[in-house]
Amino acid sequence: MTTLAVVVTVVAALLAVVGVLSTVAGRRTGQLHLAAAALLEVALLVQAVVAVVGLVGGHRPEETAAFLGYLVGIVLVPVAGVLWARSEPTRWAGTVLVVAAVVVAVMDWRLVQLWNATGG
């Protein structure tokens, strides 16, 4: 789970960087942003599958409801970010993706924290 979170964080950082660059350059988002967001989504889906397999296999986080909430919520964030940025014709579309990337990174480490707290 922690290894996956590192991967997710790196990809999220990549998305944040291309988002910042397009905002600073005054350009709207393009294929590169879409590719970075897609890569992030793939990493999150892999993580979700691993988590579900773990849950089915008997791993029980103490706060299961919160864990599931984060697990479902986090895969929606890049999708929501891309949809919300797509129709923005200015430099600010990149910043929307930066927000989405930071949210994913923060949520992911909270997810790991919840995963590891099994209440003994």
């Binding site: 919300w84 940025a85 600010w92 929307v96 927000v99 989405a100």
Partner: peptide, 14 residues
């Protein structure tokens, strides 16, 4: 809700 406002709307929605 446009330009920087789009970022704000995203944050508020979040």
């Amino acid at each position: 809700a446009a330009g920087p406002g789009r970022v704000l709307v995203g944050l508020y929605g979040l």
